[in-house]
Write a protein that binds this DNA or RNA. Sequence first.
DNA 1: TTGTATGCGTTATCAT
DNA 2: ATGATAACGCATACAA
Lengths: 333, 333
Amino acid sequence: MATIKDVAISAGVSLATVSRVVNNGPKVGEKTRQHVKKVMQELGYRPNANARALVTQKNAALGVVVAELRDPFFAMLAHGVETVARNNNVQILLSAGSIEERTELKAIETLMEYRVDAMVVHSKTLDDTTLINFAAQIPGFVLINRYIAQIANRCVWLDNVTGGRLMAEYALSQGHRQLAVISSDYHIDDPNERLEGIRQAIDAAGLKLDECMIGYASPDQEGGMQAMRNVLSASTDFSAVLAYNDAMAAGAMTLLQDRCIDVPKQVSVIGYDDVILAQYCRPKLTTLRYPIEAMAAKAAELAIHYAAGNQPQDNVTFKYTPTIVKRDSLVRR
Amino acid sequence: MATIKDVAISAGVSLATVSRVVNNGPKVGEKTRQHVKKVMQELGYRPNANARALVTQKNAALGVVVAELRDPFFAMLAHGVETVARNNNVQILLSAGSIEERTELKAIETLMEYRVDAMVVHSKTLDDTTLINFAAQIPGFVLINRYIAQIANRCVWLDNVTGGRLMAEYALSQGHRQLAVISSDYHIDDPNERLEGIRQAIDAAGLKLDECMIGYASPDQEGGMQAMRNVLSASTDFSAVLAYNDAMAAGAMTLLQDRCIDVPKQVSVIGYDDVILAQYCRPKLTTLRYPIEAMAAKAAELAIHYAAGNQPQDNVTFKYTPTIVKRDSLVRR
DNA sequence: TTGTATGCGTTATCAT
DNA sequence: ATGATAACGCATACAA
C-alpha cells in the first residue's frame, strides 16, 4: 500500500508537502495541491490511521462499550452513537463485553490500548472506583446509563426511580388497586431503583405492596414468563402487572394468555424501555419510553467534546426522565 | 501514559527485554521476567496498539461493516462476529454505513486506513468490481450475505431462491391455493431472488401468481402495512401472505387485524429471517430461519483465518439454506 | 510556499 | 539471556 513517501517521490515534492495536502493544511500552492492530489489518486494512497494516531497521540475513533449487541436495547444505543460518529466523521471502535465484570473491564482496556480518548461506556458491573479511575485517565470518558456522583458531568443516565413511580402512578390513576410486579434478578441497581419508585407511588396512595406480589427472574421474555408464573402461584388477586422491561412484559402477557387470562380485560400489563417489540406484541404494550437513542447520541457528543480538550463543567449531569407511552395493554379498571 | 521505555528504565533493563516480556517471547530469564512484569503493573503500562500495528504492518482488529445497527438482523450479525472476535482475543472495529453506496464505501475505506486485514463486510449497494478489488487488496476480506462468483471462497451467503421456494412450497402444502406476496422495493438482489423462488414453487404447482397479488414497499413494519394495503385494494382473494421479512409480516398482520381479518384463521402469514420479533408478535410468526448469527461467526472465522496468511481454497463457497420454523401464523386451509 | 529533520512507541535484526 | 539500533508512516517545528 502506497505511503506518503511514495506519493512524495512520485509527485516530486517533499513528505511535508504531501502531508499538508492530506490534512488540508494551509500554505501550499494551489497548483502543487492539485498535482499531489492527482498523484494520490493514481497511487490509491490512504493515510495510515495507526501512524497518525501514534504521532498525534490521539485516536480519531470513538470507543463504545456495550454488554450485548443482540439485545435490541443495546442495538439502539449503538445506533445513537453511530449517528453522531458519522456526523463527526469519526470511526467507531466497538467492544461488546457481556454482563460480566471481567469482560467489561477487558473491553475498556482494549480500547485504551488503541488510545481512544473519546469513549461511551455502558457498564453495570464495574465498581465506582474503577470507573472513576478510567475517567481520570481518559479525557473523553462518558458513562451511559449510570450515575456516579464524583463524575456526574460524565454521566448520561435515566432517572429510574421516577420511572418506577410513573408507571405505578399511571396504573393507580387508571383505577388499579392491586398491583403485581415482575422484576429482574440481576444484581445491578436498575431493578432496585425502579422498584423503589413503584413503592413510593404505592405508599403515597395509601396502599401496600406485598412481597409475594413481586416475582424475580432474568430480564428477558423467558424470565417474564417465569416471574409471572411465580406470582400467579402465590396470588391471583391483582389487576395490573408492572414489568421490569418490555421483554419481561411480553413474556408475562404470553403466560397470561396461555392461561386464558385476557390482557388487558382481566389483567393489564405495563412495560419499560419502549423497544421495538413493544409495538409488535399483542396487545401493543403500554410502556415507559426510555430515550436511549437520544441519550446515546448525547453521550457520544459529550465524549467527543471532552476528548477535544473541552473541560467538563462542574455541577452538571445529564439526567433523562422516561415518559408514559399509552398503547393497548393497560386499560382503566 | 507509561511507555515501554519508561518500563525499561524503571526496571533497569533494555527496551528489547521489556518487549519480549510483553509478547511472552522466549529467551528471557524467569527472574527478569517477573521483575519486569511487576514494574509494568506498578506503572500501569499498556502496550500502544497503534504503534504495534504500525511496526508489524498488521492490525489485530477485526473490521465489520453493516448497514444499520438498529435493525435486529444486523444486531444478530454483529453479535455472531463479536463472539468469534472475543474467542480469538481480537478487537472489533465496527463501521455502520446505512444502505447507501457512498457511506458503505466510506465504511470500508476507513477500515482500510486502520489497516485491518480481517474484515467482514455486508454490502448490498457496492458493485461486484469494487468488492473484488477490495478482496484483492485485503487478505482477510470476507463478504456476508452476498455471492460473487470470482471471489466465491470469500462469500458466506444464503440461498434466497431456495428460501423463497421453501416458503411457497410450505404454504401450498398446507392447502393454500391463492397466495399474496409482499416484497421489498429496495433495489437489491434479495427481494428478486426470494420472489423467483416463490414463482418457481407456484409454477411447479401449476398455479399462477398474478402481478396484482404482489405489493412492494420498504422492508419494515410500516412497509408491510403499506404493501398489504395495496394488495388488499386490488384483491381479497388469497388465503396466505408471503412476506419479504418478519418486519413486513408483522406489519401485514397488524393491518389485517386492524381490518378485522383474523390471522391465521382467515389469512395465514409467513415471514422470513426469524428475528426475535417473530417470537414476540401475535400470533407467533411462522417464518424461515436465516441462520445469520452462525453465518456471521463463520465469516469472522474465515476472515481471521485468511488474514493470518492462509490461502483461501479454490472452488469453495459458504452457502447456507434457510429452514422453515413452524409457529402459529400459518395454518392448514 | 516548500523542504529537512526529529520523534511518536513498538517490533525485529543483529550483536554481545 | 540481554542490549543497541533501525525501521514502520506520519505530523510538525524549524529552516530556507
